[in-house]
């Protein structure tokens, strides 16, 4: 017996990069693309968490519109023709990566996730061999007050995966964002030291969904920290099964 539940949900057929694809109508273009092994880069998106459309790397073109659409939050539609790798999109993605690198103090060589970092691998995949914008080099702190984990804001890209996993999966809502614009920062509770947080359950989900070395386990040295994400699809499917 197939474990896949039979769905009565309508299916949409459309094209991605000229290839015929189909998807359930509630799926996003990103989900449809990935189901057909078409790679669209993402940093803020993580399957199992809500989508926010913040990193803008997954922007795609839809024929007939001058606008770009974030694939992670754009639903599939019948008959649309999606382009994921036009010259313009490739250029924009590279620029977005450059902006992310220029924002804080990313030094891969001394980073705890060197070799296991989504920011690093995405940069490589997109062919970003240097950053044209001046580095902003803000002075940011490291909070190592937690007994098991630490947060290094120098490496944070504000993807808010930690905020979402803590709120949506662990339902502790320890993490949130404070400040505005370039001064934004993820915080624990009311911007208290993480170690003094009353809501943190020490589950470590935030650490493992973090795409960079911003959140890491204490005691890990350069390149030693690889993130474990298996828990997320497992918890999400368990939860869905319970709801059904």
């Amino acid at each position: 017996m197939s474990p896949v539940p039979i769905t009565t949900e309508p299916v949409k057929t459309f094209k991605i990069n000229g290839q015929d694809v189909s998807a359930r109508e509630t799926e996003s273009i990103l989900q449809a693309a990935r189901a057909h092994n078409i790679d669209i880069p993402t940093l803020c998106h993580l399957e199992g968490l809500s989508s926010t459309g913040a990193c803008r790397l997954c922007m795609v073109e839809i024929k007939g519109s001058n606008k770009l659409f974030p694939a992670c939050v754009t639903r599939v539609q019948e008959g649309i023709e999606v382009m994921t790798h036009s010259e313009r999109l490739v250029k924009y993605r590279r620029m977005l990566m450059e902006l992310i690198f220029s924002e804080r103090n990313h030094v891969c060589a001394v980073c705890v996730v060197n070799g296991h970092c989504e920011l690093q691998s995405t940069a490589q995949k997109l062919g970003m061999d240097h950053v044209r914008y001046p580095y902003l080099n803000p002075q940011l702190e490291v909070d190592a007050s937690h007994e098991r984990y630490a947060v290094d804001h120098n490496r944070c890209i504000l993807c808010t995966r930690c905020v979402r996993v803590c709120d949506e999966i662990e339902t502790a809502h320890t993490w949130d964002v404070m400040g505005r614009g370039i001064g934004s920062k993820v915080i624990t509770d009311f911007n208290q030291p993480w170690g003094e947080s009353e809501t943190c359950t020490r589950c470590g989900k935030c650490v493992n969904v973090c795409p960079t070395g911003a959140l890491f386990e204490k005691g890990k040295s350069v390149a030693e920290m690889a993130k474990q994400r298996q828990f997320l699809p497992y918890l999400v499917s368990r939860r869905e099964a319970m709801i059904e």
């Binding site: 690198f101 103090n105 030094v107 891969c108 240097h130 080099n137 002075q139």
Partner: peptide, 16 residues
């Protein structure tokens, strides 16, 4: 190398 490309470790003094 990274120092020439990004300023890398030598640039870790920049924020201060």
């Amino acid at each position: 190398g990274d120092c020439a490309v990004t300023a890398n470790v030598p640039a870790m003094r920049n924020p201060f």
